[in-house]
Amino acid sequence: MPWWFLPLLMALMVGLLCPATGTLLVTQRRLLQSNLISHAVLPGLAVALALGLDPALGGVLSGVLGALVAERLQRRDGRSHEAVINTVLAGFLGLGVLLIPLLNLRLDLEAVLFGDLLAVGSSDLLRTLIAAASLLLLVVCSYRSLVYLGVDPDGAAAVGLPVRGLRLALAFVTALVVVSAMAAVGVVLVIALLCAPVLPGLHRVTSLRAAMLRSSLVGMALSGAGFALALLLNLPPGPLIGVACLGLLLPGSRIR
């Protein structure tokens, strides 16, 4: 197996998985929350490392915890949701950065934040497969409920769909996806792969299923091309994929 095979496979899988999840997040208006989750994985990651556990496990738990804390703090009357979410994001990120020296960890913060695709191993691949399975499970079990919740959240509550449960499940899947994509693009840059591939064509497809499929294909192409270009130019792949995501939005902006 050539040395570039595993990183390329990882880039393609993350390129498929992130936009598929991102399609759900965009259509459920959960992007801000998912950005919070992606930053909130850090403290759990640090604690799990200190305890000698799998860092991904800690990351998922603290990501979901961050989302729950934000939801709790939003419930006070009259508070801006965006302000609360961004404050919790900064708080968790800060805590994570503080924990690294406090717990005496040897953790490459730059790799966590921006990815280190060339250093991925088979455990990263396994995490990605677990995240993909959880996404598949959520979509297969709750497809129509997710559609209802996306198009008409009030109506979904009115007919008795488990709105809170669905959103919690989505937060959980998001945390899994973020943690698995961490190795490839990092927790900061993952937001680009969650968003950008979703947008071209979202206003044309006629089902959520088609939107997910389409964004996955776009994401895979983007991620694979970004990786190849990074090798060619001898640049870090994560940031390059982030920039490529921005490039994806530019052509459409003149037409509409």
Binding site: T27, R29, R144, S145, V147, Y148, G150, V151, D152, P153, D154, G155, A156, A158, V159, G160, L161, L202, H203, V205, T206, S207, L208, A210, A211
Partner: peptide, 25 residues
Amino acid sequence: MPQRGRIDWGFPITVWEMVALGQVQ
């Protein structure tokens, strides 16, 4: 039947599928 402002009209869904949601469960 909710106020129209509460609906995400840009959601990728056809009229048929939207109506079918009336029996989502």
